[in-house]
C-alpha cells in the first residue's frame, strides 16, 4: 500500500477553495485513492481562502462512505493555514454528527416545530 499526496491548489486551480463542485471533485479523487488502498495526504499549501461549502463536499462527504477509524488511519492533512485548522476540525465534527443522526434529523425538526 503506497501513499498519494493531493495538492488542493492543483485540484481547484486557484488559491480559493470555495465551490461545492471543486469539493466534489476532491471527494471523488480521495475516494478513488482510498479504494485502491492508498494512504492519502491532503496538501493545502497555497490555499488562502477555504470555506465550509468546499470542506463539506470534499471532507464531510467522506463520512458517508467511510467511518472515522478508517479515515484516521488512511487520511492526513498538511499545509493548512493555522486559522483554517479550526474550520477543518469543525467540519469533521459536524460530518460525524450529521451522519450519526441523519435518520433522526427529520424527526427532530418536526418536533422542533410541533407548536406551529
Amino acid at each position: 500500500m503506497g501513499q498519494k499526496t493531493i495538492s488542493i491548489f492543483d485540484v481547484v486551480g486557484s488559491k480559493a477553495a470555495v465551490s461545492t463542485e471543486d469539493g466534489e471533485r476532491l471527494f471523488e479523487t480521495i475516494s478513488a485513492f482510498l479504494e485502491k488502498d492508498f494512504d492519502v495526504v491532503l496538501d493545502f499549501a497555497n490555499i488562502e481562502t477555504l470555506i465550509t461549502t468546499f470542506l463539506n463536499a470534499a471532507i464531510g462527504q467522506l463520512y458517508s462512505k467511510y467511518d472515522s477509524p478508517f479515515l484516521r488511519k488512511h487520511l492526513r492533512v498538511r499545509g493548512l493555514q493555522p486559522e483554517d485548522r479550526d474550520r477543518m476540525i469543525k467540519t469533521i465534527e459536524r460530518a460525524k454528527e450529521y451522519f450519526k443522526d441523519k435518520e433522526n434529523t427529520e424527526k427532530d425538526i418536526r418536533e422542533a416545530f410541533d407548536d406551529e
Partner: peptide, 15 residues
C-alpha cells in the same frame, strides 16, 4: 487576531 487555535497543528486534526 482571531487566531485562537494557533496551538493546533495539522497532525492534531483527527478524522
Amino acid at each position: 487576531s482571531y487566531c485562537l487555535t494557533s496551538e493546533i497543528s495539522d497532525t492534531d486534526i483527527s478524522f
